[in-house]
Design a protein around this nucleic acid. Structure first.
Ligand SMILES: [Zn+2]
Ligand SMILES: [Zn+2]
Ligand SMILES: [Zn+2]
Ligand SMILES: [Zn+2]
Lengths: 132, 132
DNA sequence: TACATAATGTTATAATATAACATTAATTAA
DNA sequence: TTAATTAATGTTATATTATAACATTATGTA
């Protein structure tokens, strides 16, 4: 429940950038943004990203290779994530829907595999783009 | 409903390899496999992959950057896909579950965005790996 | 045939991500 | 409070994934 976590220097710098960004942001765009702060190598960015994903402060949008800050207090440490993605303007929102997450968390496939995690990405046109 | 489609030479070669593979296969692994058949450049592979995804003969496993043949006659032209992924052995299966797809196809988020497509990836341990 | 569209071939390069190894900082436990 | 352990950082090089740009050939259609 409690996501509180002390971030290291690089983790904090990189998290701040992702949180301030209004749209998903890519690793090398983050790298470009933090070079003035002394983070010079891709690996420094990727390590911070890995950790931030692990502790659920950010999520990776897999279909876009980009990252967003978590907007959802109950996506249990990044184990259950759902997003809507506009295929026109690329706007991404994290979906917070209790019924949906309950449904997916309890989903059992025929092979009886027990799931620990899921990621769901919906694609379509956002309201703005669908009137154009 | 009818996925029948005549494939071009490169598309057929690449589809055959993906279909024969028992596990998800990556673009450059496909490239390696088809070099003896005269397909020499990444772009030739990626173009065939794009087309095969578009017509629903294969799907991309986004979290793995790999491709599998569709095993499911009713995942309407790749618009609605769900997979289970074992985090230990990386086995991937396409989930075919009518209730799940009905549920997700009719899902409406709060922003009222109309979805045309979704992709869902479940992660866990397959039966084999969970007894280890 | 002629026109349009789809697919192919080719070279170069962009974008995304990790390996390997050395060093420093923070945490834990004797 | 020091030693041991673990987490984070720094750095260089390289691996992996994907697309741009342009020329050519094949296929479908009027
Ligand atoms: Zn979240
Ligand atoms: Zn939009
Ligand atoms: Zn399918
Ligand atoms: Zn397994």
């Amino acid at each position: 429940m409690d996501k509180q976590q002390i971030l290291s220097k690089n983790q904090q710098i990189i998290f701040d950038i992702i949180e301030k960004a209004k749209e998903p942001i890519k690793a090398y765009s983050i790298l470009f943004n933090v070079q003035k702060k002394g983070i010079k190598a891709p690996l420094q960015v990727y390590r911070a990203l890995d950790k931030l994903v692990e502790i659920g402060k950010i999520h990776k949008i897999e279909s876009r290779n980009s990252f967003v800050a978590c907007k959802n207090s109950n996506c249990q440490i990044s184990k259950a994530t759902a997003f809507s993605i506009c295929e026109s303007c690329e706007e991404v929102s994290e979906i917070s829907d209790n019924k949906l997450s309950k449904y997916l968390e309890s989903f059992q496939n025929k092979a009886g595999m027990k799931f620990k995690k899921y990621n769901l990405e919906f694609f379509g046109l956002c309201k703005k783009c669908s009137v154009k």
